[in-house]
Simulated scan of single mutants.
Amino acid sequence: MEIQITIKVKLNLANAEIASSFTNTMEQYRLACNYVSEYIFNHDFDMKQSRLNKVLYTNLRSLFMLKSADCKI
């Protein structure tokens, strides 16, 4: 049995600097997700996590300036 839960939240960021930083991080994350999606599509939907991680991890870190915790596939 599969259960789906939708959560809607509103973030109250302390100031404009934090809001800008958060927006930039989310944009990089969005671009990284699109990068992974395009890779999977162009490689016949090879969905094995270990293979994806081996191929994409370093590129995700360098191209999108994400920290290691953000690059888990």
Results as ranks from 00 to 15, higher is better:
Glu17Phe: 14
Arg30Gly: 04
Ala16Leu: 11
Asn53Ser: 14
Leu63Asp: 04
Ile73Trp: 01
Met47Pro: 00
Asn34Cys: 03
Leu11Pro: 10
Asn12Lys: 14
Ser62Met: 09
Gln49Leu: 03
Cys71Leu: 04
Ile7Gly: 13
Lys72Asn: 02
Arg30Asn: 12
Val55Ile: 11
Lys54Arg: 05
Met47Val: 06
Glu17Arg: 14
Leu52Arg: 10
Ser21Asp: 06
Met65Glu: 13
Leu60Val: 01
Ala16Tyr: 05
Arg30Glu: 12
Lys67Phe: 03
Asp46Glu: 08
Lys10Trp: 04
Leu11Thr: 04
Gln28Asp: 03
Tyr35Ser: 01
Leu31Val: 00
Leu13Thr: 08
Phe41His: 10
Gln4Phe: 15
Ile73Tyr: 00
Cys71Asn: 01
Leu63Arg: 07
His43Ala: 01
Phe64Pro: 05
Tyr29Cys: 06
Glu2Lys: 11
Met47His: 01
Gln28Lys: 05
Ser68Cys: 08
Asn59His: 12
Glu17Pro: 05
Thr58Ala: 12
Ser21Glu: 11
Asn53Arg: 13
Asn12Arg: 08
Glu27Ala: 11
Thr6Cys: 11
Ala69Tyr: 14
Asn59Val: 03
Ala69Glu: 15
Met26Tyr: 02
Tyr35Glu: 02
Leu56Gln: 01
Glu2Ile: 11
Leu66His: 14
Tyr35Gln: 03
Leu13Tyr: 07
Cys33Leu: 07
Asn15Asp: 15
Tyr35Ile: 03
Phe45Asp: 00
Lys10Cys: 13
Ile7Gln: 07
Asn24Arg: 09
His43Met: 00
